[in-house]
Design a protein around this nucleic acid. Structure first.
Lengths: 236, 236
DNA sequence: GTATATTTTAAATGAGCATTTAAAATATAC
DNA sequence: GTATATTTTAAATGCTCATTTAAAATATAC
């Protein structure tokens, strides 16, 4: 049970890598153990032997996918911590988009499927993985917004930036799907290029951040303004 | 076969409305015909009798959800076509976010699940539904970017704005899920408010658009800059 | 009111799938 | 080399689910 032997590790590892790929392509529910073990060249029972069940395999797959992705593209984008915040900002945006863009990094596909259609199985482990990155990025945004920005204002802005990074990728993937299905989309990005997109998102967002900062410092944007009053209708 | 009688319409309608709800909650694959027909108070065979199969019901559900959503929140946000583009912009952003925010509009949940994990069944019908809105919004962005903006630049900016609208909602939904699961998120939006969020997205984005316009008009942003060169790695 | 067409129902069918089982194969310990 | 522990395998199990069937119920036409 405890002792992990060589051969063991090898099948376990193959299984895990296949699982990342299949979960990324199909999502938890549509991925079958048969798919995964066929791709890994093992028997279906191997999954249950090595991981217990499909759920545990899913969680382990996320961990591996995230780990590999982060290893391939360090989150600071290679920018020195002493660089001006605008540059560190661009580094982060670029790194996120690379992590999401390269299809062998299954991080993005697994996560976006999970977020849209949650199984609940990854809630904790995704949060654990991502929270440190979120904090680091938040600190850069704080610098850009100035000392008078509230926590909530920082989080709103962070959301605006990250939203662009993820949606670019969803967009791009779906354009590919539409193309394959022979549907004319009128959508952009025919020659998709991560660097170009990162530049756009950076330019657009830095301008947004400067404006929010200006408003805060001109006193035209109190926290109340960005905070929620009790008036308009709530969701649910 | 052809003639549609009264009682017929009623069960058909109940089935359709239940289907919207269940597909929105669970996505295509996890929604079962048993779920749907139970909610509608009909027999499971009724689905096949009235719609043929689950796939056709899914497509019809999207149509209904989208139609109702648009009816409840007109896409221009009630802003006159003669208003300045900034106001029309805000109207659109607000309308989109309302459509997405109110949970009885199943549009958002069905669409975001479909986009993250495509069945392919909605590709055409979603595009058909959304394309006119996309065009109208594109025209507003064109006004804001000025006459020298390229089509690609407009589409990039449009993506940046829509990305924020959709991600706010995903974010919010998942915060609720995390809360329910008792997981501390550190995520924002404790008192979620559509108007506040629409204001933020509008402010942030209008600043981004002004900056892109400035760069275009200063000649610092040729279409080449925003277009894709052949250098860096492509996805897939 | 009777005959015909439509709609609803309960039960059956059969496919897909995660998981289990127990035997066979392989590695490890001594 | 033999005994023991680990790993792999093919087949079986049992559950969920979409879809079908054919009989019963209900509506419509005349």
């Amino acid at each position: 049970m405890e002792a992990v032997k060589k051969q063991d590790v090898r099948t376990r590892q193959r299984l895990l890598e296949s699982a990342c790929q299949v979960f990324a392509e199909k999502g938890y529910r549509d991925a079958t153990i048969a798919d995964i073990s066929e791709l890994a060249g093992t028997n279906v029972a191997a999954v249950n032997y090595h991981f217990g069940d499909k759920e545990a395999l899913y969680v382990e797959s996320w961990r591996l996918a995230f780990h590999k992705s982060l290893e391939a593209y360090p989150p600071d984008g290679g920018i020195s911590p002493n660089a001006p915040p605008e540059e560190r900002f661009r580094g982060r945006v670029f790194a996120v988009m690379q992590r999401f863009a390269y299809s062998k990094n299954y991080e993005f596909e697994i996560m976006s499927k999970e977020l849209a259609n949650p199984t609940g199985l990854l809630a904790e482990v995704i949060r654990e993985s991502i929270e440190p990155l979120r904090q680091e990025f938040g600190r850069i945004i704080r610098e850009l917004l100035g000392t008078r920005a509230s926590e909530k204002q920082i989080q709103f802005c962070q959301m605006s930036v990250m939203a662009q990074c993820t949606n670019v990728m969803l967009h791009e993937r779906n354009r590919k799907l539409f193309d394959q299905a022979g549907i004319k989309t009128g959508l952009p990005f025919e020659n998709f290029n991560v660097e170009t997109m990162a530049d756009h998102v950076t330019r657009f967002s830095l301008a947004g951040l400067r404006e929010i900062r200006r408003l805060i410092e001109a006193g035209e944007l109190t926290d109340q303004n960005t905070d929620s009053p009790e008036n308009s209708e709530m969701r649910y």
